[in-house]
Amino acid sequence: MACPGDTITLSWRTNGNVTLSAEPEVPGLGKRDASGRETVTLPGGPGPTVFGIHVSRFFGLKKTDTSGEVLSPPLAREYAVVDAEGEADFSCLDQERAVEAFIVLDEEKMSPGVLIEQVTNMNVRRLVLGKDGVSKTLEEGEAAGFEGMPAQGRWSLRVPLEEGENCETAVDDVDGRLIIKLQLACRR
Rank of each mutant, 00 (worst) to 15 (best):
E117M: 11
P73L: 01
E96S: 09
R125F: 09
V119H: 03
G68C: 00
P112W: 01
P150M: 06
G68L: 06
W155F: 06
V99E: 08
P73H: 02
K62L: 15
I103P: 08
V81T: 10
W155V: 04
E139S: 14
S67M: 00
E87V: 06
A80K: 12
G113P: 07
F146G: 01
A144T: 04
T64P: 00
V119E: 02
E140Q: 14
V81S: 11
I103Y: 08
N123Q: 05
A80G: 02
E78Q: 13
E117K: 14
V114W: 08
L61A: 10
V82Y: 10
R97D: 12
G133D: 01
S72G: 12
A101M: 04
R77M: 13
Q118V: 06
V124S: 09
V124W: 12
L138P: 03
V119L: 11
A151G: 07
E78K: 12
V82P: 00
G148S: 10
N121A: 02
L115I: 10
K131F: 05
F90G: 04
G130C: 04
Y79F: 14
K131W: 04
T66H: 09
E85L: 01
T66P: 02
P112K: 09
V70T: 03
D106S: 10
F146I: 01
V124P: 00
L129M: 06
P150D: 09
G145E: 15
T66I: 08
E78C: 04
R125A: 07
C92N: 11
V82E: 12
G141R: 03
V99Q: 05
I103D: 09
A151L: 15
A101Y: 01
P74W: 05
R97M: 07
S91F: 08
N121M: 02
M122C: 00
F90T: 01
T120L: 01
R126E: 15
E140S: 15
K136F: 04
M122Y: 00
C92P: 02
A101T: 15
E117Q: 15
D65Q: 08
E69T: 15
S135R: 13
G68R: 00
I116S: 09
N123S: 03
E69Y: 00
K63E: 14
D132Y: 02
V134Y: 03
G86M: 03
R125T: 09
A143H: 05
L75F: 12
K62P: 00
G148V: 07
I103T: 12
D132Q: 07
E96Q: 14
